[in-house]
Design a protein around this nucleic acid. Structure first.
Length: 299
DNA sequence: ACGCCCGCCTGTAAGC
DNA sequence: TGCTTACAGGCGGGCG
């Protein structure tokens, strides 16, 4: 559920909070959260004593570069949360799986009830390893390529639409080179990284396009409208600190909810009047996923 | 080789 | 009222 805007909100808050801090101790309650490592100890050993240099983001992933040249990577899955605790005495909330303690004081908790989140430390590949990675897509911009090299585990991730600027011609190329339904196009992390079920519906409403329109069928005007809607919706959502849905799973570092849900035009508004045309907002199952749209405004 | 869909999980809420 | 069942979601991997 945390999609790009929610992860970006966490990134900017975290950046203020932990850059320059040194990791003193890490506790992991269960190997599941660090499943890419041989053991929880292997994960801990790569972190303890390290100083945090920055907090970055690509798509729904948080990247935390360390002194060692390695990068701590966090993914929140669908119910993952990060919490800031002032002292180790703060009572742990349920489903706290990883605790990062800092030399300067304070803790960062990784909390995740539905367990789809994970953490791992990425170690840069040597020359041979990089050569073995196939970085064939010539259209992918320079920034995306640098990331793919630095975090080899994420080499299949597409470009980040907030961090990277794309011309609408490049965007049009992605849309046209393979015909897929627009919602699948937006949610496919291999092309554009960071958009999930909520924002794909909101972007498509803003663009006036149906979820099942084929990407290859878009006119030049529609390509521009979709790209513009994508950039604008994500920017608006970041401005309002993301969306917390009905279950309020998404919380920021201090436990506060996001404010963007009140601006949703279609997501979770089935049966209500479209704010633009007053027709009823529809809800359908699409590839086992809830999809909301306005039959009248989206073509 | 590629695309679709299941399974991983738990909290919440609808339904009998 | 209380128990059961369905559902929400991202993503990796398995199957067709």
């Amino acid at each position: 559920m945390p999609e790009l805007p929610e992860v970006e909100t966490l990134r900017s808050d975290l950046s203020r909070e932990i850059v320059g801090k040194k990791i003193k101790a890490v506790t992991v309650d269960n190997g599941r959260w660090v499943r890419r490592h041989k053991s929880a100890k292997a994960f801990r050993d790569l972190l303890e004593g390290q100083t945090i240099k920055a907090v970055e983001r690509v798509g729904k992933y948080l990247l935390i570069p360390l002194d060692s040249g390695n990068t701590l990577v966090l993914h929140l899955g669908m119910s993952g949360q990060l919490h800031r605790a002032k002292t180790p005495k703060t009572p742990k909330i349920k489903h706290t799986h990883i605790v990062f303690g800092f030399t300067q004081g304070g803790e960062l908790w990784f909390v995740d009830p539905r367990t789809f989140g994970e953490a791992f430390v990425s170690v840069p590949l040597n020359e041979a390893g990089q050569a073995a990675l196939q970085l064939s897509d010539s259209v992918v911009n320079a920034e995306a390529r640098v990331l793919r090299r630095r975090i080899s585990e994420l080499h299949e991730l597409g470009f980040d639409p907030v961090e990277s600027m794309l011309t609408w011609e490049q965007f049009g190329y992605f849309l046209h080179h393979k015909p897929v339904q627009l919602k699948a196009f937006l949610m496919d992390q291999h092309t554009i990284a960071g958009i999930g079920n909520v924002y794909s519906d909101e972007i498509l409403f803003a663009a006036g396009l149906r979820y099942d329109r084929l990407s290859s069928s878009l006119s030049t005007t529609e390509v521009r409208r979709l790209y513009r809607a994508l950039v604008e919706i994500l920017a608006e959502a970041i401005k309002h600190r993301g969306s917390s849905l009905a279950d309020e799973q998404y919380r920021d570092l201090e436990g506060r909810t996001g404010n963007f849900s009140q601006f949703h035009e279609v997501y979770d508004r089935a049966g209500l009047a479209c704010r633009r045309c007053r027709n009823t907002v529809q809800k359908v199952k699409w590839k086992d996923r809830n999809t909301y749209f306005c039959d009248h405004c989206q073509i």
